[in-house]
């Protein structure tokens, strides 16, 4: 006891108890959360039942559920929703296929593996606005490198009603596949090597081994990757906002932005934000249920 003080008693000699230290960490965090998350969340819930406009000094009237019923009856918003849903499916599936594929390729001893992995992670470390801007250059119809490289003539990726959504999705896939790859790689390298050896001794084919051993073992972590990417894809704003103004490709968050800050319909915009929140919660809940099942198996 003379020389080896336990951490708590060492802190005590400096006058800080464990509780003080804990509070020092926790209180600022909780304060920040309340000021910047919890308060706006509740405040905007209040707005969603009013005709409040942040741009005017007109008196605020309580309108009940009118904002919600208006939004749910608006075909423009419904189109935005279905566009967003399709965007989420395309983008997340793409990220999953590319990311998991890369992870499978990287999950073996290859020279320069660490360097290669770092290199592949670069896209997701960039700012979305920067990514959006330079993909805009890549997609440029007259001198963009994509049309030049693929010999597609003057394809107008970002202004074509049918292509704009996919163009944004491709950018998103490029940016976020590394994330799926990173999580998959962690999952794959956690599969014990002796299981593969046992399977090879048991004369299982590569494909059989993949479906019977690899996939079930990495499924939970893959699902986590998909949950994260779905939530993010649902909220996609920055990339799309920078890249295209195509109304056919308008995602729900762009619509929300326009309502809130171009048209200053603060009340209805708050209502829409809540509808989006509830949808995202529902979708993630479904995933979480699958995740628990996958873990149980």
């Amino acid at each position: 006891m003379m020389t080896t003080l336990s951490p708590s008693s060492r802190a005590a000699t400096r006058g800080w108890s464990d509780i003080t230290i804990r509070n020092l960490f926790v209180i600022p965090t909780v304060a920040f959360l309340i000021i910047f998350n919890v308060f706006p969340l509740l405040y905007s819930l209040g707005f969603s039942f009013t005709d409040f406009r942040a741009s005017s000094k007109a008196p605020v009237n309580f309108v009940g559920l009118k904002n919600y019923t208006d939004i749910l009856a608006d075909p423009v918003i419904w189109r935005s929703f279905s566009t967003t849903l399709w965007y989420v499916i395309v983008s997340v599936t793409g990220q999953f296929v590319v990311g998991f594929g890369l992870a499978l390729l990287l999950n073996r001893p290859i020279p320069g593996k660490g360097f290669l992995t770092t290199l592949l992670l670069l896209p997701m470390m960039l700012s979305p606005v920067v990514v959006g801007l330079f993909w805009k250059l890549i997609y440029d119809p007259s001198w963009g490198i994509l049309n030049y490289a693929l010999g597609l003539g003057k394809t107008a990726w970002l202004t074509d009603a049918n292509l704009a959504l996919y163009a944004v999705a491709i950018t998103d896939i490029w940016m976020w596949s590394p994330f799926v790859m990173l999580l998959s790689l962690a999952g794959l390298s956690a599969v014990p090597k002796h299981l593969y050896e046992a399977a090879s001794i048991d004369r299982a084919s590569k494909l059989y081994t993949f479906f019977r051993i690899t996939l079930p073992l990495v499924a939970p972590i893959l699902l986590i990757a998909v949950i994260f990417r779905t939530m993010e894809a649902f909220k996609t704003f920055d990339i799309a906002f920078v890249m295209t103004g195509q109304p056919q490709a308008e995602l729900i968050s762009s619509r929300l932005y326009k309502m809130a800050f171009a048209q200053w319909q603060t009340g209805p915009a708050s209502a829409l934000a809540y509808i989006v929140l509830i949808m995202v919660l529902c979708i993630t809940n479904i995933y979480v249920k699958y995740l628990n099942k996958a873990k149980e198996r």
Binding site: H194, L195, A198, I201, R203, I213
Partner: peptide, 16 residues
């Protein structure tokens, strides 16, 4: 390993 038709039991069981 598959062609040699051997069976292997390891200390760490290696059950699937």
């Amino acid at each position: 390993a598959a062609e040699r038709d051997v069976a292997l039991v390891l200390q760490q069981y290696s059950l699937y």
